[in-house]
Design a protein around this nucleic acid. Structure first.
Lengths: 192, 192
DNA sequence: CTTGATTGTCTAGCGGTGCTAGGATCGAAT
DNA sequence: ATTCGATCCTAGCACCGCTAGACAATCAAG
């Protein structure tokens, strides 16, 4: 038994290595640079080993996305927990969200731009994704305003943040006034 | 002279054919299916001909994007011109924008998701892109509210629409409540 | 009308991609 | 010690974006 257990441990360890390496490589050189050959070389195994852990590149992206979702949820909760008013909580959430997107662009892409083969907004949505949305809902739900469904409000606010994050990073919006845009968004959308 | 003119006409015509075919193929089967080989086959020329018109695939995407920007600007202006109040104009703009994104997903991707090698928000930004932003600014500027820069407001509102468009289409948001989210956005962001 | 240069287009191929079939190797269990 | 199954790698497929160089059509000059 012990032998088998050790093998399973090693296998799980190798899987973590693959995901961590993919993430690292993507952050360093972009997802285009994450080829199965380069990834295999970095983990010092041959290509087919990747396919014994994941169905393909898409699933590797998905694994990075799930990891990222958990991290983002944690960072958002940490930021909002330090705030004392609903208004301040929403502002902290927005800053934390955009900060995460800016500091982890590849992970953010894996989550919301690329196809990681994950289901979103459904019953079979993976737990980390549901929980990340829940982290947003916790702070945004309380400023939805009368007669507005908290979930719908959270979706809308989130979409706005997502738009800012992606357009800014893609060079479609000048980055100088980023803070002002966030302030405007919080001021107008949140009912406090 | 006339011979040379005819050749130039034919060349321009072929270039239009390339862009139109790329757009069509992208809308039908997605940008991944737009390979230089398939594109060449559809226009009934060999691959290298594409490279006598464009530096590479990226520039073809850029050409589709410019065409799309012009079309989007026109559709937005048509929609807003039919509205009679600032509030109604903003709502019409939002609907037209999201409608365009939903009906031309590949073109929308070329504009805002993919790398078409275009400069955004700069002096050397191509005219159609500047004009598309101007089309938004025309209607959004009048509801920015006191003390808020119209350009900054337009950027923020646009980013929110962009977030809704991309997240909805990527399956990150359930499509049923799309209209309610737009309404919420218009109600809260626009000062009327 | 023939020649020669120029222009236009094509065939073929380079190095890369994601992915997989099939053989070699290694370790556990008899 | 020998089998046998799991594990891993080599080699290769079809495809990608892109380009060099051969070839054919066209035109200007003699």
């Amino acid at each position: 038994m012990s032998v088998q257990e050790r093998k399973e441990r090693e296998r799980a360890e190798r899987e973590r290595l693959i995901v961590a390496t993919a993430r690292e490589l993507a952050e360093q050189q972009g997802w285009d640079a994450v080829t199965t050959r380069r990834l295999a070389e970095r983990i010092e195994y041959s290509q087919p080993v990747l396919y014994s852990h994941f169905r393909g590149k898409r699933e590797i992206i998905g694994a990075v996305a799930l990891q990222g979702a958990a991290q983002m949820a944690a960072e958002v909760r940490a930021a909002t927990s330090r705030a004392n008013s609903p208004r301040e909580r929403v502002a902290a959430l927005a800053r934390a969200y955009l900060d995460f997107a800016a500091r982890n662009p590849a992970v953010y892409d894996a989550l919301f731009q690329l196809d990681g083969g994950l289901a979103y907004a459904q019953e079979d949505t993976p737990e980390p994704l549901k929980d990340a949305f829940a982290a947003l809902l916790e702070s945004l739900g309380e400023v939805a305003g009368d007669g507005v469904h908290p979930g719908l409000f959270t979706e809308t606010f989130w979409a706005s943040l997502h738009g800012l994050a992606t357009l800014t990073r893609a060079g479609r919006l000048p980055p100088e006034d980023a803070a002002q845009r966030v302030e405007l968004l919080v001021d107008r959308l949140a009912v406090v």
